[in-house]
Design a protein around this nucleic acid. Sequence first.
DNA 1: GTCTATATATTGATAGAC
DNA 2: GTCTATCAATATATAGAC
Lengths: 203, 203
Amino acid sequence: MPRSVAGRRTHDAESIVRIAFSLFRERGYDATTIDQVAVRAGVTKAAIYHHVSGKEAILVNGVTRALDALFAVLEDPRVTAPAATPMDQLEQILRAAVEVEVEHLDEVAVLLRMRGNTSVESAIMQRRREFDEAVARIVEEAMRRGEARADLDPHIATRLILGMANSLTEWIRPAGEMSRERIVDAVVGIARSGLSAPTESTS
Amino acid sequence: MPRSVAGRRTHDAESIVRIAFSLFRERGYDATTIDQVAVRAGVTKAAIYHHVSGKEAILVNGVTRALDALFAVLEDPRVTAPAATPMDQLEQILRAAVEVEVEHLDEVAVLLRMRGNTSVESAIMQRRREFDEAVARIVEEAMRRGEARADLDPHIATRLILGMANSLTEWIRPAGEMSRERIVDAVVGIARSGLSAPTESTS
DNA sequence: GTCTATATATTGATAGAC
DNA sequence: GTCTATCAATATATAGAC
């Protein structure tokens, strides 16, 4: 966040987008006005338009960053390791995805809530579906190899597992040190083994 | 949906709310205009205001119905049966909750997306948190009794399980006969046992 | 880079006729 | 119960000075 010598608040495109997304997540994109963004940034509306071309441009900028971070998860060495089984790949994807969701909370939360009302939004949602589809292929492979239970539809199962992981963007607190590790372990633990206590026979 | 003798479209409060919520779910509450509701209803804006007092009144009416249906789940005989263990109770809650989400898809989807921007919305969200809290108490009891794994925080686990179930409101298709049973079984199956294939030792 | 002032469009809501 | 016409408020965006 740039700051002039006099200590006066000053901004650039990135700081505007960041501030706008904190409001988008809190109140929703449509319910947030440019004026509210200006107030939180400590400037007037007109100053906002000096840095960004408009409200939708802010939206696209932020959710694109979120999508880039999510797709980077698929290229993570822990995921692409040749020795990794599909179930291990899924676990690493979930771990990395939760980390991205915590790290880019505002942007991911807004991305997940998008409804595709404009053509720009539809294009972004299309890209998001491609991410889900990539994960679904890994789940399918896990089922084929007998690592995952095969009695469930792989696409439904994938959507539910990702839906579980994504849901944390709706209740996690931005600064809250709610131990990211405990959350990651819970997501992975439930995805792999569910809530039931391990059976005695295997202990 | 009332209909006059001449076959001309005519409405009452309930039909307006239902039509409005189909749009609220598709496009989001804030992004939906009263005029769009009027167009889908086949009337003009003014006619809408003859049946409901305003946009927020429509919102409250619909999400209240959704909340009532969710709380009714907790009173379901299959849930309150004295012989039911906490884990069985949780399973029945999930089964009934998914049924409610499919049955009242539009209303539940909008409820789950609410951000609490007005005092009315905050009151509704407070009621929703009470539902989550009731489920969390059952999960806690399951952990105490050793039916559920005790290595996870019960509140985090509850939010993730409910988040998984709730997520289907974002991808299910209203009329789509995507076999409600397959979805219910997937939610319950993952919640209990996760995705991993059953171990050989127990077969 | 930010300001004041304003143009322009949209939208929730109402008045009064039929 | 629905219509046409219109008001009032709000919101995105721009013009031009400092």
